[in-house]
């Protein structure tokens, strides 16, 4: 049993070290002043917040932050609304084509997004969606729907449906039963789907770099990759590190508060027994 005890004590510590070291490194890098950035040390010798001031004064970053938040939130709301409707139908109603929807969702989840980037760019540029918010919201919507639909379908299956039937027996239509009884019960599931969807949109890079080009719609991951130094040839390392830390803060906050929901969401969709 000695091994088990060691596993129980050192395991969590090892996991925490493994996952947190790169984060600490990023924070440390972002605190290094211009002359110390190349000193090869893990910890900053003279921590400074200068890089944070720099990124918040950089238009490319502030506009990207606005775009990322706006686009991700809109895509999340739309995706969750559509997925809720679909998942309710799949979990609850009997109609032909249910399997088809789930198969389509599965196919889309496996789709290599890069295959679409070329044609989407070509279409977007001719219909005026290139470098606009809707130009990103639309693909995000399509590619987050599968995950939302699975998560929600799994959640909806756990809901005690007798209550809905009771409502229907009392004379409510299926729609009313859905709205008055199921929606409150399903809210936690919807919330989980929303978090996962938000993570996807927040994380996306492929569409972000291909379908945008300016502060009008460029999102944070894309902006980071095209960050420029203060002068022509300067390496923007410290500024990128600071910007990276800034955009990681919401992720850590969401994870800290909602870790139980996220775990439930990730494991319910794919491997529910």
């Amino acid at each position: 049993m000695g091994r088990v005890r060691i596993l129980k004590v050192t395991g969590p510590v090892l996991i925490a070290v493994w996952t947190l070291v790169p984060l600490l490194w990023l924070v440390s890098l972002s605190l290094k002043g211009g002359d110390h950035i190349n000193d090869g040390r893990f910890w900053p010798t003279a921590p400074t917040l200068r890089n944070y001031r720099t990124v918040f004064r950089t238009d490319l970053f502030t506009s990207a932050l606005r775009n990322s938040i706006g686009i991700s939130v809109i895509a999340t709301v739309l995706s969750v609304v559509l997925a809720t409707l679909a998942a309710y139908a799949i979990a609850r109603l009997d109609f032909p084509g249910k399997k088809l929807i789930l198969s389509v969702a599965l196919g889309i989840a496996m789709f290599p997004t890069i295959s679409l980037v070329g044609p989407l760019f070509d279409i977007w540029r001719s219909v005026g969606l290139y470098d606009t918010w809707p130009g990103l919201v639309i693909p995000y919507l399509s590619f987050t729907l599968p995950l939302s639909i699975w998560t929600l379908t799994a959640f909806f299956r756990e809901i005690p449906w007798e209550m809905e039937q009771a409502a229907q027996v009392d004379g409510a239509t299926p729609w009313q039963a859905f709205r008055k009884v199921i929606v409150p019960l399903a809210a936690p599931g919807v919330f989980t789907a929303a978090i996962l969807t938000f993570f996807f949109a927040w994380n996306d890079f492929v569409f972000g770099i291909s379908l945008t080009s300016t502060g009008r719609a460029r999102t944070v991951p894309a902006a980071l990759a095209f960050f420029t130094g203060a002068s022509q040839f300067e390496q923007p390392t410290a500024a990128i590190a600071a910007a990276a830390v800034v955009v990681t803060i919401p992720v850590v906050a969401i994870v800290l508060v909602f870790q139980r929901r996220i775990v439930a969401g990730l494991t319910s969709g794919a491997v529910k027994g």
Partner: peptide, 23 residues
């Protein structure tokens, strides 16, 4: 002014895409 990326090829890429969209 709008600032393009650091390296010359990326600058060209940005401009080509915007101009192809008849910006």
């Amino acid at each position: 002014v709008s600032t393009l990326p650091n390296d010359a090829s990326a600058q060209r890429e940005q401009l080509v895409r915007r101009l192809a969209a008849r910006d």
